Each structure stands twice: as C-alpha cells, then as structure tokens.
Amino acid sequence: MLNEGEGLRVGVVGTGSLGFHHARILRDVPDLDMRGVYEVRPDRAKEVSRELGVEAHGSIEALFDTVDAVVIAVPTVEHEAVALAALERGIHVLIEKPMAPDLESADRILAVAERTGALVQIGHVERFNPAILAAEPYLERPLFIESHRIAPFVPRSTDVAVVLDLMIHDVDLVCGLVGDPIREIAAAGLAVLTRHVDIANARLTFEGGAVANLTASRVS
C-alpha cells in the first residue's frame, strides 16, 4: 500500500479505446507512479506497451501485486469480476461507466468495498465538463431539462443498452443538478442494430416538481 512520500501506484485493466487513453493520461500525471496495464489480448498488450512505454503485465494478478489503485476499462459485463478481485485485495478502483450491467452487480461491488475499506469511483466524466461547471452556479432550481445525446453507430459498448452506454451521463447530471428524489419514470426504447436498446427516451419527474426529458441514441 501507499507509503508516506511515495506517489500513488496505479494501473489500468483493459486497453481498448478508453483504457488506452486512461493509461496514456495516467502515465503523464505528476506524483503518480504508473505501474502498467493488463490486457487479455497479448498482441494489443504489446502494442500499448510499445506505444506508451509502460509495462504490460502477463496476468491481472501480476498487475495487482504492484498497485494501490486501478482503472477498470473492460467490457461492462466484466466490471464486477475485475472490481471484486481488486477490492478483495484492498485496491481502490475507478470503474468506467456504467458501474455494472445491473443493480445487483453494483450492490455486490459496493458491499465488498464497504467490507474492505477500498474506494470505488465511477467515471462520470461529464460532471467535469467545463460547460456544466460554468452553468452550475446559475442553476439554483431547474424546473425543466431537455437533453439529446445523439451519436452514429460504433460497434463498441454494445454489450449494454444505450441507457447504460450514453444516457447514463445525462441521468447522472440531471439528478445532481435537480437534487430531489425521482418520483416517476416513463420510458421507451427500441433495439435497432444490436440485441439491446439502441435508442431511448425517458421522462423523469422529481419530487420537487422538476421534469427532465432525456433522449439518447447510438444509431443516428
């Protein structure tokens, strides 16, 4: 674990599109000790190691032996298994959104984190969007929010529905901005190019009267 005067030792599990950028950025953050990556595809692991100049560990256990915290950037259906393995060793985790494919899986992750004392953070990066940060001081009591998150189809993150892939950003932002519990949800969605919902609309009504109308599509 972290000793006084040492930088936090970090690593990345999964080096797809997002995992690669996590590794690249962590490598260059001052006062962090980037200990490398683990990737199940050997050729990809070698490619990332060569391009970024970081170590590609031969097993996830080998990476865990060297770190205090890891970024988990594997497919969503694998989040729980990787997170539990890290948390059981007291390793802090930053999990790419969504946290898990379902509530039961998320609850199991949190239960182990609470038992071991390791921290769990989810990569809701839109919270730090400069536009959101600039607007927040002026949004004292939003009453109606309309959001459209529209993207062309890319064969990535199709192991979950568009609600967990894209709309989750807007659900997170809206809940934070409104601050009240949700009273009612009305939603509809369709599977277009994958076996999961690819385009969806949700209307969230909050206890304080605020309404948010959210649309997300990954096939537009």
Rank of each mutant, 00 (worst) to 15 (best):
Y138W: 15
V178I: 09
G117E: 09
G7T: 11
L87M: 08
A210N: 06
G16P: 05
R218C: 13
V160N: 01
I132H: 09
V171C: 02
V77T: 11
V37A: 04
R44M: 03
A188I: 12
T194A: 10
L143A: 14
H21M: 07
E140T: 15
L193C: 10
I25D: 13
A111L: 07
L63M: 03
M99K: 13
V74M: 07
A86P: 04
V82M: 09
R156Y: 10
I132W: 04
I132C: 07
L166S: 08
L214Q: 10
A106I: 12
E114P: 08
R89G: 03
A23Q: 03
I72G: 09
H196W: 14
G176D: 03
E114V: 00
A188F: 05
V70L: 02
V192Y: 12
G19W: 11
A187V: 02
P181L: 08
Q121T: 14
A134H: 03
A83G: 03
V82N: 04
I199K: 14
P152Q: 07
H169I: 13
A100L: 05
E6K: 12
L52Y: 05
V37D: 07
D68V: 12
E136W: 15
D180Q: 14
L63S: 06
V13N: 01
A85H: 10
G208W: 12
D68G: 15
D170I: 12
V29G: 11
V160A: 09
I95E: 00
F153E: 05
I182E: 01
